[in-house]
Write a protein that binds this DNA or RNA. Structure first.
Lengths: 118, 118
DNA sequence: CCAATTGTTCAATAACTTTTGAACTAAGGA
DNA sequence: TCCTTAGTTCAAAAGTTATTGAACAATTGG
């Protein structure tokens, strides 16, 4: 059971920008970036909205090609598609993350350290 | 009569990204960038939409802090706020322009039309 | 098997965005 | 003054996106 993701060459600039133009999704991306590639599951973003709402925003990010979601048991392990985005739009993700990094207007994720079964 | 613009420190990352997440506005920004700072008036974008519609999109860009519009007679001379955006979000505008520069899916101004093989 | 956990899907609604035409203002020239 | 040019504003229609709760699946552990 794998989820649909666009190929690198199918990632569209206006769609990526539109998807990142939402404070909740930008906060998700910032938090993923702060975790340096460690995969996170949905529940770790619950500070940013309801479970249903996060499912919606995470699907938008995945369908735009910004994140990758891998099914592991009952979890979806989510990572940023850093290399793919950098190949497609060099420097874009880095500058967005840097700009989001010190933006106090964005919602923040509190630290949840939950162990994911293997 | 001057038009309202946000100060550099009032420019918001999600608003800028949201505004750029529209093919017409991205095409406007790309065309402004290709003109290397030479101010353009509204009518020069008529390939991208009706006069009314361009007025709407250009207002969005101006209110987000992406462009500056200066009133000169009956014209609004429009420029990219390159320095302001670079001060606020280093590298962001450059990477967006570079990515938009070779995107055949974006609408084009002037004779930059896309060739579709038969 | 049963129950808990994780997350999705659906339908409804609320909120926002885009596009349009008609009417308008303001400046400049004949 | 009258006409043209440049662009705005308004209101309506159409389209899109965000948010919610209830119901649903899939997996895992007891």
């Amino acid at each position: 059971m794998t989820l649909p993701h666009p190929n690198t060459d199918q990632i569209s600039l206006p769609i990526v920008l539109g998807v990142l133009g939402d404070p909740t999704r930008l906060a998700i991306v910032r938090y993923l970036a702060s975790k340096q590639g460690v995969p996170l599951n949905c529940s770790q973003f619950l500070d940013l909205g309801s479970k249903t709402n996060l499912s919606y925003h995470l699907a938008k990010l995945r369908e735009a090609g910004v994140t990758r979601a891998e099914v592991v048991g009952t979890n979806r392990m989510i990572t940023l598609r850093r290399a793919d985005l950098d190949a497609r739009f060099p420097g874009l993700l880095d500058s967005v993350i840097a700009a989001a990094g010190d933006d106090p207007a964005l919602p923040a994720v509190g630290g949840h350290d939950i162990e994911i079964p293997a």
